[in-house]
């Protein structure tokens, strides 16, 4: 083994330059955003990148913007804390703000970025399920140009995405949504804070009329399959039906069946599966009880409904 070399760090001023550096230096490098995953991987998990390309000097890579068509752009280097407190997000998608607020601690959220959470692609990434139910898209750029993928296509496996080494995630785009959309994110973990999700469940729901007919529903699960996933069979249980508690429970059972959890030091697959059922039901009930607009932050969502 060689003596550890000092880490080579680049600080490009544009996406093109950043991408070009990777093309030139070859594979084995890493982009750096907030560093809350990367630095720990280097210091404690033996990751030894050949070089690091810091994206924080690239202008226009952060910020949240509502476009004319009603879509919402969250640039990749926007921090979790910015998402958590953004009046825009709190108004339109309070559950997305909630999912960002569930990450680590305030100190972590001040550094951790949305792009990093997606690019790192852990199955338990807290913001992923909420973005999945909003059918968000990932904007990816390189020196060669730009492409857009749905977030579902973006995730390939634990730590794996659709991006090529020289590609940079520049933004997450949430397409225009129904004005009546309500949602929910529940992070289930044994501790009240500073914990990874054992199970994460996000819901986006549009209910119509007094009878609460479900015009559309999307359910996404975190930490229970190799990538954050949509639970389409569970969605089908409710779609176009009149929303009831029984139906929510059935959807939970369906979600428990279609997820693919593993057993690890945190918990057994069976327990995770059972919690997917319970939390899906609770998340649906929580969502259905809401009105569009900001939701006051009261307590852990798992305890509401």
């Amino acid at each position: 083994m060689k003596r550890p070399e000092p880490l080579e760090i680049f600080q490009p001023a544009s996406v093109e330059e950043a991408s070009a550096i990777v093309k030139e230096k070859g594979p084995g490098g890493r982009f750096l955003a907030g560093g809350t995953d990367l630095i720990i991987a280097i210091k404690e998990k033996g990751l030894a990148p050949k070089y690091v390309v810091d994206l924080k000097r690239v202008p226009n890579l952060s910020g949240i913007r509502e476009e004319a068509d009603g879509s919402l752009t969250i640039r990749a280097l926007t921090t979790m804390r910015e998402v958590e407190i953004s009046p825009l997000i709190r108004k339109r998608f309070p559950f997305l703000a909630q999912s960002a607020a569930e990450v680590g601690s305030i100190q972590i959220r001040n550094r951790a970025t949305v792009g990093g959470n997606m690019a790192n692609a852990t199955p338990s990434a807290d913001v992923a399920p909420s973005l999945l139910v909003l059918e968000a898209r990932a904007k990816i750029a390189s020196a060669g140009g730009e492409r857009v993928l749905s977030l579902e296509e973006f995730f390939h496996g634990p730590g794996q995405t659709a991006m090529l080494p020289e590609e940079i995630l520049t933004a997450i785009v949430i397409p225009p949504t129904h004005p009546k959309l309500v949602g929910e994110y529940i992070k289930f973990s044994p501790r009240e804070m500073m914990d990874l999700a054992y199970v994460g469940v996000a819901i986006a729901l549009v209910l119509n009329g007094k009878e609460k007919r479900c015009e559309s529903v999307r359910i996404a699960l975190g930490a229970v399959s190799p990538t954050p996933m949509r639970a389409r069979k569970a969605e089908a249980v409710i779609e176009k039906q009149i929303f009831t508690e029984e139906l929510a429970e059935k959807a939970g059972e369906e979600a428990a069946k279609e997820c693919k959890p593993i057993s690890d030091v945190r918990s057994s697959a069976e327990y995770r599966r059972a919690m997917v059922g319970t939390m899906t039901k609770r998340a649906l009930l929580n969502a259905a009880a809401q009105r569009p607009g900001p939701v006051p932050w009261v307590e852990r969502r798992e305890r509401r409904y």
């Binding site: 404690e44 501790r191 009240e192 804070m193 500073m194 990874l196």
Partner: peptide, 16 residues
Amino acid sequence: VRNPSFLDYHLVTSLD
């Protein structure tokens, strides 16, 4: 030891 870190060795936090 399968959980030799504070990620998976759970101390209580102030909120607990």
